[in-house]
Design a binder for these strands. Structure first.
Lengths: 101, 101
DNA sequence: TTGACATATATGAATATCTCTATATATTGG
DNA sequence: CCAATATATAGAGATATTCATATATGTCAA
């Protein structure tokens, strides 16, 4: 049985919900998948890999960066994004473990 | 390094995104928390515990049931909801492990 | 059957999300 | 500086969410 200590605070629930909502979108989840696999990708790689418009990729990337899920690092003309929220990595691996056929 | 086998199919990504979006809402995540802790709850317990309108609780519960996250069982005048998507339980426990202060 | 209680649904308004097109900004090579 | 490439942003239209109010439905006891 669970104990009261297993409950998250209201703020923790809010934060967790924000993070989950952030990755709870097909395109964004695919981006997370790609970044989890590749470690780091620039915008062009992402939008070409997923077959989506560059602007759409950029918008989703900026959204996830604003929520603290991703971070971007500019290298010359490219911006490389990576996952910075460790919870996201954990959730993704959890899903890999439990969503495979 | 990851292998191609670590990637989810497009359908699996869609399914996973739907599930994550489902629990990526403060009220729904709190409901999940409660059900994970208590095992089963009726609508009144949920809406009173969370301090939300009965109709709102019912709406979120029906949404999650429609997405296959929850199931309800009627016992007389009450309907008891429980988590039926094992992935959700895993993700919640994962979040507990990584979101505590 | 009627009343009381629990749950579900309809509806609408406010707000948010999503994606497209077009354009702007940034960086570098020449 | 200029051209080329990469990335970001603005604006708008379509769609989806969210939550409140009101009402409907279901169950049981008397």
């Amino acid at each position: 049985m669970k104990t009261p200590a297993d409950s998250l605070s209201v703020e923790a629930v809010q934060q967790a919900a924000t993070m989950l909502k952030c990755i709870g979108h097909p395109i964004r989840l695919q981006i997370i998948e790609l970044l989890d696999k590749e470690g780091e990708c620039n915008v062009t790689t992402i939008h070409e890999s997923l077959g989506i418009e560059q602007a759409v990729a950029s918008q989703h990337l900026n959204l996830m960066r604003d929520k603290g899920v991703l971070a971007g690092r500019r290298d010359g003309v490219n911006v490389y994004y990576r996952i910075v929220d460790a919870r996201v990595t954990q959730v993704i691996e959890c899903i890999h473990d439990h969503c495979q056929p």
